[in-house]
């Protein structure tokens, strides 16, 4: 029960269906990938403990269903969250266009009092790409997103990096992040490794 003392941070994953929200979380949690996850119904929950410096936090991840019909459930989860990760599929222009709507939903519930991350998933699908990296970056900037990344859950590309960046924004680690600045290597996170090489992208 001593675990209860850990600081807990809620992170909600949003976005159109089939952009890979569940895959992203599963890759982070278990470092596995499966192309056939059953569709998420309502909301799924996962929890992971992260270590950084001498501190430990617990991330509570809320994985929402993309389908329209389940939308009425989502606002209450957004309301509770510190971080909103909005995912689109780089091979689906539509999922990118609908980002605006998701961001608006988040701002309605949380105002500016939330960390917004924008993630373009499936960047392994180079032949089918419909959204450029630049467009993604521009959109992230326009909406004041703190984090923007392209990822591939399939290849495991940038996934750990994403969660590391998210952790850095949490009050618990913010100070540590600033003092260490370039110090990605200072992260003593057993789950987050080899990320330095992938850090080349916009940090906004």
């Amino acid at each position: 029960m001593s675990k209860s003392n850990l600081s807990k941070y809620k992170i909600v994953f949003l976005g159109e269906q089939n952009v890979g929200k569940t895959s992203l979380i599963t890759r982070f949690m278990y470092d596995t990938f499966d192309s056939t996850y059953a569709a998420t119904i309502g909301i799924d929950f996962l929890s992971k403990t992260m270590y950084l410096d001498d501190k430990t936090v617990r991330l509570q991840l809320w994985d929402t269903a993309g389908q329209e019909r389940f939308r009425s459930l989502i606002p209450s989860y957004i309301r509770d969250s510190h971080v909103a990760v909005i995912v689109y599929d780089v091979s689906s222009k539509k999922s990118f266009e609908l980002l605006d709507k998701w961001i608006e939903d988040v701002k309605i519930e949380r105002g500016e009092n939330v960390i917004i991350c924008i993630v373009g998933n499936k960047n392994d699908l180079t032949d089918e790409r419909q959204v450029s990296l630049q467009d993604g970056e521009a959109k992230a900037k326009a909406h004041g997103a703190k984090i923007f990344l392209e990822t591939s859950s399939k290849l495991g590309y940038n996934v750990k990096s994403l969660f590391k960046k998210i952790a850095k924004t949490l009050p618990e680690f913010e100070a540590a992040g600033k003092s260490g600045e370039e110090g990605a290597s200072e992260m003593i996170d057993i789950n987050v490794e080899n990320t330095t090489t992938q850090d080349g992208q916009c940090q906004c």
């Binding site: 059953a38 119904i41 309502g42 909301i43 459930l73």
Partner: peptide
């Protein structure tokens, strides 16, 4: 309850 039983109802415990 809605956090865990929504799916139980939506999918009749089939998951």
């Amino acid at each position: 309850f809605i956090q865990f039983s929504f799916r139980w109802m939506n999918c009749m415990l089939m998951r």
